[in-house]
Design a binder for these strands. Structure first.
Length: 163
DNA sequence: TCGCAGGGCCGCT
DNA sequence: AGCGGCCCTGCGA
C-alpha cells in the first residue's frame, strides 16, 4: 500500500508564496498557502509522483498564468456533497481571470438562497487555487473573505489581473 | 437526533 | 450601518 502521508512544499518567490501539499496515497488531502515578504529561492524537493504533478500544476498557474487542463487528484471523500457541488461548479465554470459572486455561484448550483452556505463551504475549501475560491467575491465587488487570509486572496486576484 | 448558533452573504430600511 | 432571512455545518445536550 501507498498509504502514507507526505508533505510536499513548493516555493514561488515571484509571488512570495509557499505552497504546502498534503499527499496521502495517490490523493491530495489538503493544500495550504503561506505568504512571506521575502522568500529565498529554494530547490523544490519532490518526494512523490503526485508532488511532481502538483508542481507542474502550480508552475503553470504561477508562471504561465493559466489553469492547466488536467485536474489534480483530490480526496473528494473529505468534503460534503454540498461542498463538492460548489467546488466542482467553481472549477468548471469560473476560469483564470474571471470572478463570480457568492450569489451567482449559489444560483449556479440551483439554490439562489444558499449564498451564505456557499461562503461557509468556501471557507472550508481544503484545496485553494485548485478549487479557485479566491475568484468568489461579494456582489458589489467587495472582497469577501479567504481561509488563508485576505492578503493572499488579493495577491491571487492581482496575479490573475483582477483588481 | 434535535436544536441552536454562527458563517468568506444579500437586500431592504 | 443595522437587521432579518436565507441554507448548511458543527457541537452540545
Amino acid at each position: 500500500m501507498n498509504n502514507y502521508i507526505e508533505i510536499e512544499t513548493l516555493y514561488f518567490p515571484i509571488v512570495s508564496l509557499r505552497v504546502e501539499i498534503k499527499v496521502k496515497g495517490d490523493l491530495i488531502e489538503k493544500i495550504s498557502l503561506y505568504q512571506a515578504k521575502i522568500l529565498y529561492k529554494k530547490d523544490n524537493k519532490i518526494h512523490t509522483k503526485l508532488g511532481a504533478l502538483a508542481q507542474n500544476f502550480f508552475e503553470s498557474y504561477f508562471f504561465k498564468k493559466k489553469t492547466p487542463l488536467f485536474l489534480l487528484p483530490l480526496n473528494w471523500s473529505l468534503v460534503s456533497d454540498f461542498q463538492k457541488k460548489v467546488y466542482k461548479t467553481l472549477i468548471s465554470d469560473v476560469p483564470f481571470g474571471k470572478t463570480i459572486s457568492y450569489l451567482e455561484l449559489a444560483k449556479k448550483i440551483g439554490n439562489p438562497n444558499a449564498c451564505r452556505a456557499v461562503g461557509q463551504a468556501l471557507s472550508k475549501n481544503p484545496w485553494p487555487i485548485v478549487v479557485p475560491c479566491h475568484r468568489v467575491i461579494g456582489k458589489q465587488n467587495s472582497l469577501g473573505g479567504f481561509s488563508c487570509g485576505i492578503p493572499i486572496k488579493k495577491l491571487l486576484l492581482q496575479h490573475e489581473n483582477i483588481f
